[in-house]
Design a binder for these strands. Structure first.
Lengths: 199, 199, 199, 199
DNA sequence: ACATAACCGAGACGGTACGTCAGGTCTTGAC
DNA sequence: GTCAAGACCTGACGTACCGTCTCGGTTATGT
């Protein structure tokens, strides 16, 4: 597939839009963003924004990833407790960045209200789930966890409280809590009371 | 404080509005509701709606509670496992009512986007939390759970996965899973790895 | 027909919109008018303008008629030459008002480009034609003009040159020319060379 | 003036643009033409069109003349009635070609709205006027018409009704009417009621 | 019995933002 | 140096709802 001509996409325009989006995010939160304001702030035409981003959540998601694209770790030390602690600590650290918190909350909200956005958001979420799934699967393979463990539910026990605290905001998340949460989780898992995973 | 006269609030108008709200909820979801549509559907004037409800989430919350006001149980049998199982089973049963699921998701979304609505929603959520807190506190008092238990985190372990599944929709909630989740939870708690609760 | 309720239409808003439309007409001509500018100039919301006027030409036409609603004379003195002279003189006097000239030209242009506007404009034009038709018909009835006269073509001889000069602008219209044009017209008519009018 | 090199103007591009313009003219009328559509239809880039034509009316005018460049007759038989009848008949025949009617109406409309186009359009119109002027001037020189005749107004009597019918569309133009219109016109002229032409 | 005052429907109002469209300019790489 | 392609800014379009604000008309008291 070859390009046969045409003006090339302006990197300036792209960067200005993403920068303006982040600025607005900090000032007014996800709900305070409008394409109109992004256009005004960035000096980029609305039509140019619509050419490259199909929707507000798509734009915000890209701006977010562009800004904080430091990937989550995918630890594989051979010890399940260590792996989970590393991962959870990194996850909880989002609470130290109010901007990221606000973005995550806004994206979650959008996914509830806008069916068209749901699959994209689900993809984003599930990508994170697989990291934990892999850690648990490897541990079960090594015999460090019971064979019949319900991995799916364990994953929900990792991410559920995280999101719950993020969304309700009743209690701040603290990266220092991660080791305790991991210990609780593993205690529960070793008891192996879950039903067998769905085939 | 005496009323000295004046026409009394019309029960018809109130009922028509709530009914129309529920209808629209079923048809278009929370995000598909507008005050304008509710007014048109119900035959009640927009100004009347604004007189009695301050906002969309307020209206929806009332319509929801009016329709499905079966209170959550507050069990106190003396056995922590039984109490939690009863409660969790009732909680999970929401998944059998797509309407309620949609409302809960919409309210959560609104709370993310609309700061004015956050406190009301947090109140709604925390009321449910206290039921679980009370169950755990009583069990600890009886010595059925370690004294230094981190009740706050335990509550998050109950509600976190519930909301997470509800919001992301990656795996359906099943009331039959409640006993297993309770067992896992208690196993974790008895290990008592949590930090002491904040004073 | 009874009003059954609702806030009454604001005369201020209406007047402000029409005034702003005329102002813009003077400054920028018909083609320079946009609903957006009318809204900004008048301080009336765009939605209010769209509520009452379906389109730009409709708005301009009302503004024009509202401003210059001094009706054209419909003379009936019993003398065809006098009647026509009075009418034509009044008609030509539009050239003394550049604003009205611009509006007429703009409306004619819109009728060419916008099929939806054509009928409304044709109605406006034909209303003026009937005045001349009536003058000629009465004269023919009195025997002041040959019975078999082609009234339709005579009407075109009155309005055709008028519009032609207005639109092309090659030679200014002068109300003082009206008597001569009437005399020419009547000479031509009395010769009666036209085909019989279509039955 | 020497060309120093470089690619030569593509005749293909030019022809494709003009052909596409005519096609769109037939399908959607003058008002339905956009440079964008012409570019898409012709496969020629928008920038190329802008390079060679300054505006929509310029493009349409060239396309129109390119397609129907059959010149109007310029009769000189020595008889004024014959000359005028030949000319008027040819003029009226445009009504048999809806495409040309549409173009003429569109150009007239554009001249009203676009001051920059007015002079070009006036030139086009006046070129036609001179043909009639010459016929009348020759007749006056021969003594077939009174010497003090108002030629300018006579020209308006020829073109005025023609354009008026074309633009308003209230009554179809019929080439068969031309002889009658000529007879009426000459009757009026011979009466010589017009004011002396402006010096 | 009737005045009072709050209620109710209708719907106009000033706004904000939407997503689309065309205009006219500019940039790129191929010919 | 022209060409096709197409990105870019500009500015207006017409629509949907927002939350507020008159209107005219309608009840229930409570004196």
């Amino acid at each position: 597939m070859v390009r046969t001509g045409g003006r090339v996409r302006s990197a300036d325009a792209r960067d200005d839009v993403l920068a303006a989006t982040l600025q607005l995010l900090e000032e007014a939160g996800y709900g305070g963003i409008t394409i109109e304001k992004v256009a005004a702030r960035s000096g980029v035409a609305k039509s140019t924004i619509y050419r490259w981003w199909d929707s507000r959540p798509g734009l915000v998601m890209e701006a977010y990833q562009h800004a904080v694209s430091q990937r989550m770790p995918e630890p594989d030390t051979g010890d399940v407790a260590t792996d989970l602690t590393v991962f959870l600590t990194a996850l909880y650290r989002v609470s130290e960045h109010p901007l990221r918190v606000r973005v995550l909350r806004g994206l979650m909200a959008e996914a509830q209200l806008n069916p068209a956005f749901e699959p994209a958001f689900r993809g984003f979420v599930q990508h994170r789930q697989t990291v934990v799934e892999d850690i648990l699967r490897r541990a079960a393979g090594r015999g460090d966890l019971p064979a019949g463990i319900n991995i799916a539910h364990a994953v929900d026990l990792v991410f559920g409280p995280f999101w719950y605290r993020l969304l309700v905001g009743h209690r701040p998340l603290d990266p220092a809590d991660a080791p305790h949460h991991v210990a609780d989780l593993l205690d529960g898992l070793k008891g192996n009371h879950g039903p067998p995973p769905q085939p």
